[in-house]
Design a protein around this nucleic acid. Structure first.
Length: 597
RNA sequence: GGUCCCGUAGCUCAGUGGAUAGAGCAACAGCCUUCUAAGCUGUGGGUCGAAGGUUCGAAUCUUUCCGGGAUCACCA
């Protein structure tokens, strides 16, 4: 089915050639939706076409309007306002469209085929020394929503998680546990594993600072004190033992990571995300190291007198990038080279996307260049989906200052708000506790996910913990509520055996009905845009527009009690399709619709 | 200092070459004997950070400046 906008463009090109004997550049033909102030559905902006017509805007628009009116059966009338040709489509066009999608259950959604491109998307990527926070939530929601969007565009998608499970920061929490825990476990103290481990990471920092202060009190300079502090030395020793695969160290490491993973899984499950594969940096860093050593032998890399291996990127306007430290250990970049290679071997991807904060823009730029220099032909298939930070009103979240918004705390808070609101409204009376719990959860998540996803990914965003996330207005629950209303209406229609699933007849629609159909018609375009721009916010804003439009329609139209049967059927189909698109769009954002609210 | 991102209503955000710049929140005023009021309607609120340039047309492109942030590690 060709889109009407496309058809108008094609016809306009023909019109220009027939009327003005000119070959029009398709890029100069702009079709946009007619703004509310004027009558029409689509507007052709004629200013760019004056070079072809050599007439004034008014006359050009009239020429083209008359031509299109004659050549396109879909066009019912036109109006010229200054340089804008406002085209109004026939009612039949919109009715036929609605009728066409009446039976389909997959409107706008594309299926996966054998030839579908293979896309790997990495997100979450937590460290195992602390629990997830709001920053991770933005990352996870962006990643999982993009995975949904790619799937809906018929791509074969694999979600992967890369866990940073090794390094000095992990050893810090291990050491603190060893020194302070006296054998305590998450079970023995009744704490979620990631929070439990995170507390030891904080405890390390506290003790470390104390030791630095003590050393400085003896007259030692700060720089030196930071290096000489007892616990830091111990943590470093632990890292060395870890790298030598010292059994006791590895056992402790495994135990603590296992606790953390259990905690992460719980949070992932609550957020409704899952991964097709989980990678661990402890498995990939050596692959990177091997590749680097091999490339060194082949003369692709350079060495410094102290043994440091690096790649000179000055020709790209960047610095020298170290790939192996003078002591032979790997750096972050080396690990990521290994991860990328392993991922290509596993998935043979057409695209590999990293959802990582914009503070790593430089890192990923360099990663691509390095992979290119090391002659991996697929280096141009990896890309960085960069997103902005989540800030508090007073600025950046800082774990050291305790201003981090914890993911689990936030979810619990959202849940409580959902529960309180629902109880106040008293709409869930008569449901079981399990049903209520399910509803609170879906609303809480709807509010949180929408709040995060409606903001353009690349922008920094502000979260104010004191003003909890709204449930009214431009929010997830507002859209969910609209969908629930529609479902309730359809349930009622079915219960009363109201027939409406037959071919639609409708002689005249009013503006609200028409607006709804037009928005439904836009859904595939917005999905496409979300895919191309890699931006769930496009869909979030669309869902809001659609819900808002429906609520206005609902408010001043009778549906089940419509004046006649034809009107009732038409409005029910319109409601059903609106509900479908709302559900689909919310689904792409990872938001579910409760049974009642 | 170099590079990159951002700056739109009191607050949170849409709009990235087209018509008189939009929502929500907050404030105020209305609408439930009518299919779910987590809804609907109305009022007030803007030199789109500033100045120049390109264009028939600029919040949008461009230059400079101002403000905020990120990054330029043998941290990840």
């Amino acid at each position: 089915m060709i889109r009407i906008e496309e058809k108008i463009i094609q016809e306009t090109i023909v019109a220009i050639s027939k009327l003005y004997q000119a070959e029009a550049d398709a890029k100069k033909i702009q079709i946009q939706k007619t703004i509310k102030e004027y009558d029409g559905d689509y507007t052709l902006v004629v200013f760019p076409l004056l070079a072809y017509s050599r007439k004034n805007p008014q006359l050009t628009a009239e020429d083209l309007g008359n031509y299109l009116l004659n050549s396109m059966i879909e066009i019912a009338e036109f109006q010229v306002v200054k340089g804008f040709l406002n085209l109004k489509l026939s009612q039949a066009f919109w009715i036929d469209f609605l009728d066409e999608i009446r039976q389909t259950e997959t409107y706008g959604i594309e299926g996966v085929t054998e030839n579908s491109p293979q896309v790997v998307i990495e997100y979450a990527s937590p460290n195992t020394n602390k629990p997830l926070h709001l920053g991770h939530i933005r990352n996870i929601l962006l990643g999982s929503s993009m995975a949904n969007i790619f799937k809906a565009k018929g791509k074969k998608v694999f979600s992967v998680n890369l866990i940073n499970d090794r390094g000095i920061h992990i050893c810090k929490s291990m050491l603190a546990w060893q020194e302070l825990a006296d054998g305590a476990t998450p079970e023995s103290v009744g704490k979620k594993g990631d929070h439990f481990v995170g507390e030891y990471y904080v405890a390390f920092d506290k003790e470390y600072k104390k030791q630095i202060a003590e050393l400085m009190a003896t007259g030692m300079p700060e720089e030196q004190a930071k290096e000489e502090a007892d616990w830091l030395k111990k943590a470093r020793g632990m890292l060395k033992r870890w790298e030598r695969e010292h059994k006791k160290t590895r056992d402790l490491w495994k135990d603590m990571n296992t606790w953390v993973y259990a905690g992460f899984e719980e949070t992932f499950a609550k957020l409704g995300v899952h991964f097709d594969k989980t990678y661990y940096e402890s498995d990939t860093y050596l692959i990177g190291k091997e590749v680097v050593l091999k490339s060194l032998k082949l003369g692709e890399l350079s060495t410094k007198p102290d043994g440091t291996v690096f790649l000179d990127l000055t020709e790209y306007g960047m610095d020298e990038k170290v790939l192996l430290r003078s002591d032979g250990t790997t750096v972050y970049m080396t690990q990521d080279i290994g991860s990328a290679i392993l991922r290509y071997d596993d998935f043979n991807f057409d695209e590999s996307i990293y959802v990582v904060g914009n503070e790593q823009d430089y890192h990923f730029k360099v990663l691509r260049i390095i992979l290119d220099r090391l002659e991996f032909a697929w280096s141009n298939r990896i890309s960085h989906l960069s997103y902005g930070m989540v800030e508090l009103p007073e600025g950046k979240m800082k774990s050291r200052e305790g201003t981090v918004v914890d993911a689990d705390d936030l979810l619990l808070e959202m849940y409580t708000t959902a529960k309180n609101t629902a109880e106040q409204l008293g709409k869930l009376d008569g449901l079981t506790d399990a049903e209520k719990h399910d509803i609170y959860m879906k609303i809480a998540l709807g509010a949180l996910k929408y709040f995060i996803l409606k903001v353009d990914a690349k922008k920094n965003m502000v979260f104010n913990p004191k003003e909890s996330i709204d449930f009214n207005g431009n929010t997830g629950p507002f859209i969910q509520y609209t969908a629930v209303r529609i479902n309730s209406l359809l349930t009622k229609a079915n219960a009363d055996n109201v027939p409406y699933r037959h071919r639609i007849h409708r002689n005249s629609m009013d503006s609200k009905e028409l607006e709804l159909i037009k928005l439904i018609y836009d859904f595939p375009i917005l999905l496409q845009e979300a895919d191309e721009k890699r931006s769930p916010s496009v869909l979030a804003n669309f869902a809001y527009d659609l819900a808002k439009e429906y609520n206005q329609f609902y408010h001043n139209h009778k549906i089940l009690n419509a004046e006649d049967e034809e009107t009732r059927s038409f409005r029910l189909v319109l409601s059903e399709k609106t509900g479908f698109v709302l559900r689909a769009t919310l689904g792409l954002l990872g938001i579910e619709i409760p049974i009642r609210m």
